[in-house]
Design a protein around this nucleic acid. Sequence first.
DNA 1: CAAAAAACGTTATGTTATAACATTAAGACT
DNA 2: AGTCTTAATGTTATAACATAACGTTTTTTG
Lengths: 130, 130
Amino acid sequence: MSEKLTSNRKAVLAILNASPTAMSAYEILDCLHRHDSKWKPATVYRALNYLIDGHYVHRIESEQKFISCTQTHDGSDRHFLICQQCGNVSEHLLDERAKYFLTALAEDLDFQLRSPYLESHGLCHNCRNN
Amino acid sequence: MSEKLTSNRKAVLAILNASPTAMSAYEILDCLHRHDSKWKPATVYRALNYLIDGHYVHRIESEQKFISCTQTHDGSDRHFLICQQCGNVSEHLLDERAKYFLTALAEDLDFQLRSPYLESHGLCHNCRNN
DNA sequence: CAAAAAACGTTATGTTATAACATTAAGACT
DNA sequence: AGTCTTAATGTTATAACATAACGTTTTTTG
């Protein structure tokens, strides 16, 4: 859990840790520029890719944004709930029943699912109740 | 079903109709340039957005690509199976059971699903059996 | 300490998508 | 048909997302 990160990677992760919403790489870059103008897109993307490989961070495919990981896991079988109103993203693990269901649903269509994964868009608890 | 399309829209749709795999807007643009150099990105995107609104075409969110629609429907409750090997995309409707399952899965996490929708990545029948 | 590997800095460029505004084409109503 | 209106298009520019390539520095390790 606590291998140590280089300062670049730590800086990028710190920004994502402080954000409940997913951020684009360039939003992260803007944030970093407040402290230091040295940052360049490639540097941010390199840090992000490392953090993603290590499951410190996830990429939300449907939004091309990044969010810090809040779960202990091996990187698969995730379920992201993305609120369309406030932008908050919550991360959950797909349970066995859900994994089975998704796998079987694909199987019925003669398709071998790579690995169960879900991104769901809608309204979070707070936004639903105004 | 058969309102008539302008020539730009017809041209873009014809290209997608001829492709079993999803195409990026710029791949479509390259195709169109073989016949006429007049095409510009904005023209292609305008046609695509119109075709998407009319459910002639879908956008595959996880790939930022476009595919022609093969189902009759109102635009919701789709399930796309995207083959990682050959790139083919097949489109299906989520049945009531699947819609219920996905909605309940979100509901258990205190989240109100916008509308059931799935993009699944894996291996299609052909690629699985080499 | 020397060699190798990993990370970083930097520049450039590739890819995806839309804003803004002028012009043309199409439909609708006397 | 003529004019008014709206829809579609052409065109230019630029925003937003992402990586290639290559040289340098730092870290690891034998």
